[in-house]
């Protein structure tokens, strides 16, 4: 009986991997240029932004929450980095002008993203606003701030060095892929090998039991939302660097792809169950599907339909396997 269960758990554990492989096989058959080195790097670079967002989203969803603001936070962080790098910070009323180095501008963007995440966490823990509502508000607020900062126009011409991150290669591997790999590695270790990671699972699995076991539930959540904001800012860095410009509409709707990836990766929206590794597979499934449908020249509107159904099927299979 138990062996049967373990066997089943194995299948459930690897079902996303099976799905990904199946998808690759199918696309390789139907799209002749699909199975190639080019596509390999293309997919990996295309998914890098969603990977950053989804790692953060995994943490948030593991605590039983949700973060709808990541797309907007990505945009704001991106335009802050670009704006500070290009124009510096000028406050005419105080007659202050600060110019920013490349590193300083990036750091400022990351700090802004983290702060917005922190603010989400504050609303959720101190004011007991449901995560859905708090981050929905932040989605609008951050987008508004982005438009205010840019005046609605893109900030372009950021220089070659800045573009290195989004277009350069190191040892033959795109820099953004290195960055993602590092982030994934860090958070796999955080979740599996640190107290903080274990506590995330406990909070999402049973908040009351976690509190009664002496865990500082609020502090854990605050940190998780802050990290989600920081990772969204990293996403903003990649997208801005890739395009060598920051557009105020960047990241629009990215939160949905990110939630989809986490869910396809087997993380439960109720919290307490899931992993970063699952999320990687979810991100890759969406990425491979996107590239494949593009190569097959499936019209954009149909692509949306297909993606929607893939999400439904993935989660339905997961439910069928885990219930009973």
């Amino acid at each position: 009986m138990l062996e049967l269960k373990a066997h089943k758990a194995l299948v459930v554990k690897f079902q996303s991997l099976f799905a990904l492989l199946l998808l690759i096989v199918i696309l390789s058959i139907f799209a002749e240029n699909f199975f190639s080195k080019n596509t390999f790097w293309l997919v990996l670079t295309q998914v890098s932004i969603n990977m950053c967002l989804s790692v953060g989203m995994t943490l948030v969803i593991l605590t039983g929450g949700i973060d709808l603001s990541v797309g907007s936070v990505l945009a704001l962080s991106g335009v802050i980095m670009a704006g500070l790098l290009k124009n510096g910070l000028e406050i005419p009323s105080l007659n202050i002008f600060i110019s920013f180095s490349l590193f300083g501008a990036i750091l400022a963007g990351l700090i802004v993203g983290s702060f917005l995440g922190f603010f989400n966490g504050l609303m959720i823990t101190r004011f007991r606003i449901p995560p859905f509502v708090a981050t929905l508000a932040m989605l609008t607020i951050a987008r508004g701030l982005t438009e205010l900062w840019t005046g609605g126009a893109a900030i372009t011409g950021l220089g070659k060095t800045f573009g290195y991150l989004g277009t350069g290669r190191l040892l033959g591997v795109p820099v953004q892929v290195w960055l993602c790999a590092a982030i994934v590695l860090i958070f796999v270790i955080v979740l599996r090998k640190t107290r903080f990671g274990r506590y995330i699972y406990a909070v999402g699995g049973n908040e009351k039991a976690a509190r009664l076991s002496g865990l500082n539930v609020n502090r854990i959540k605050l940190l998780v939302y802050t990290l989600a904001g920081a990772l969204a800012a990293v996403g903003g860095l990649i997208v801005t660097s890739k395009l060598n410009s920051a557009t105020p509409s960047a990241g629009d709707g990215y939160e949905l792809d990110s939630i989809a990836a986490v869910v396809i990766g087997g993380t439960s929206l109720n919290g307490g169950k899931g992993s970063v590794l699952g999320t990687i597979l979810g991100v890759l499934i969406i990425g491979v599907l996107n590239s494949g449908l593009n190569i097959l020249e499936v019209p954009a509107f149909w692509q949306k339909l297909v993606k929607g159904f893939v999400i439904l099927v993935a989660v339905a299979i997961d439910k069928l396997n885990t219930d009973k």
Binding site: R198, Y201, A202, G205, N206, K208, A209, L215, G272
Partner: peptide, 19 residues
């Protein structure tokens, strides 16, 4: 409701309050 995180393993449950 209050004592256990039901999806956790026996080992993780035992160590939770003194991790």
């Amino acid at each position: 409701q209050e004592g256990l995180v039901l999806q956790m393993s026996v080992a993780s449950s035992i160590s939770l309050a003194s991790l």
